[in-house]
């Protein structure tokens, strides 16, 4: 879908949420869902920061790290990609205390989701770095740059543009994964929805609103990433196309 279409869809979604919020049947749920939405946004943002950091570190270690650190990165990536996000959350929240580490639900949520998406992100980062043409590395050798300089100044900036679209998808996945934190008792959007559903049984109203709110959040992420892609693409993407 084009940027215009997405913006139109976002406007439509927000208008619908706005309209429904005014209706008698829906009004009572708005404050609770708003609180839940705020929690969802907060977890999403914090986990996204962790995910990007973990992905960069793991990808660089897997590509260029000394053997033990490389294995560590590979183990991290395989474990977090190979098991379910929900299992990881439960493990952090219920099993870690057995080893003497007790995390608050919020901390467990951010760490679990951040590391989960970070593991997928590591492969995205690695793929984008590897996709930079070999000639670019060779040019840095011919200019006598160090490997660190080459990576920082030449390779990563080019890989960055290629990473943006897959990261857009990952951030959507991340947002959706935050719904799982309701299962470790954190008061996010999904949690509030279930809670109110049990007390009021107004299932249609509640879940319609909740779906629309998630849709609006996803659209904001997609649109933001598209704009970023457009900015970063200047110069580079044209060169690739040529």
């Amino acid at each position: 879908m084009g940027l215009r279409g997405l913006a139109g869809l976002l406007a439509l979604t927000i208008a619908t949420i706005w309209y429904l919020s005014g209706l008698e049947d829906y009004r009572i749920f708005v404050p609770g869902l708003a609180q839940g939405a705020a929690m969802t946004v907060q977890i999403t943002a914090a986990a996204a920061v962790l995910a990007v950091t973990a992905a960069l570190v793991a990808a660089l270690l897997k590509l260029y790290g000394p053997a033990p650190l490389r294995w560590l990165a590979v183990t991290y990536i395989e474990i977090f990609r190979g098991t379910s996000a929900l299992v990881q959350l439960f493990w952090l929240y219920f099993v870690l205390p057995v080893f003497g580490i007790t995390l608050e639900a919020y901390t467990a949520a951010v760490i679990g989701i951040g590391l989960n998406i970070g593991a997928y992100g590591a492969e995205v980062v690695r793929g984008a770095i590897v996709a930079v043409p070999r000639g670019q590395w060779e040019a840095t050798v011919a200019l006598n740059m160090s490997r660190a300089q080459a990576l920082r100044r030449i390779i990563l900036p080019q890989a960055f543009a290629a990473m943006i679209p897959p990261w857009g998808n990952l951030f959507i996945e991340l947002l959706k994964t935050t719904a799982l934190v309701s299962m470790i008792t954190l008061g996010d959007l999904a949690f509030r929805a279930q809670q109110m559903n049990q007390t009021t049984m107004k299932t249609v109203q509640i879940f319609t609103l909740v779906l629309l709110i998630y849709l609006a959040m996803s659209l904001v992420i997609t649109i933001a990433m598209r704009l970023l892609e457009r900015r970063a693409g200047r110069g580079i993407l044209r060169a690739r196309a040529a």
Binding site: M1, I172, A190, A193, T203, F207, L211, Y214
Partner: peptide
């Protein structure tokens, strides 16, 4: 787009709880 943009968990609830209505 709608399905991919919203959490599976909510969709599961939706089908399970909203279906009867």
């Amino acid at each position: 787009e709608l399905i991919r943009s919203t959490p599976l968990l909510i969709q599961i609830f939706f089908l399970y709880f909203v279906g009867p209505s």
